[in-house]
């Protein structure tokens, strides 16, 4: 049990890094938002596993239960899930706007368009 005691945390770290890689390396904005969500869920798992007590039970009062898991992280994560969806909604709305303005939600294409724009402005009337 000695080395298994931190297994949950390692899974959390692996998930977090997968999400992080997605955010950095993927150009597509929808993909970035999904990766951000993966990252977010890993943080949720970290909090929930901090609140778990082995042999404990779901924190709803009832007969015949000796130990309850800690309800405080659960409350925090409930709030975080709902706020997370709100941020996802804003991010996707931004993506729609960017698509309408540039015709694409890929990072590299938008950067190329911006570069074109600057070239056109720097050498006018040719």
């Amino acid at each position: 049990m000695e080395w298994l005691g931190h297994f949950n945390y390692w899974i959390v770290v692996v998930l977090m890094m997968i999400g992080f890689y997605g955010v950095i390396a993927r150009g597509n904005m929808v993909k970035k938002i999904l990766a951000l969500n993966v990252f977010q869920t890993s943080v949720f798992i970290l909090f929930i596993s901090a609140g778990k007590i082995i042999g404990g039970s779901t924190p709803i009062l009832r007969e015949g239960v000796s130990a309850y898991s800690n309800p405080l992280p659960h409350v925090l994560i409930l709030t975080a899930i709902v706020v997370g969806v709100a941020t996802v909604a804003v991010g996707l709305a931004l993506a729609i706007r960017i698509r309408e303005a540039y015709g694409s939600i890929e990072d590299d294409r938008i950067a190329a368009q911006e570069a074109d724009e600057e070239n056109r402005q720097s050498e006018p009337s040719r």
């Binding site: 798992i45 609140g51 659960h74 994560i77």
Partner: peptide
Amino acid sequence: FTVLDAGDV
């Protein structure tokens, strides 16, 4: 989350 006792979550 269910396994970790967080039913509401």
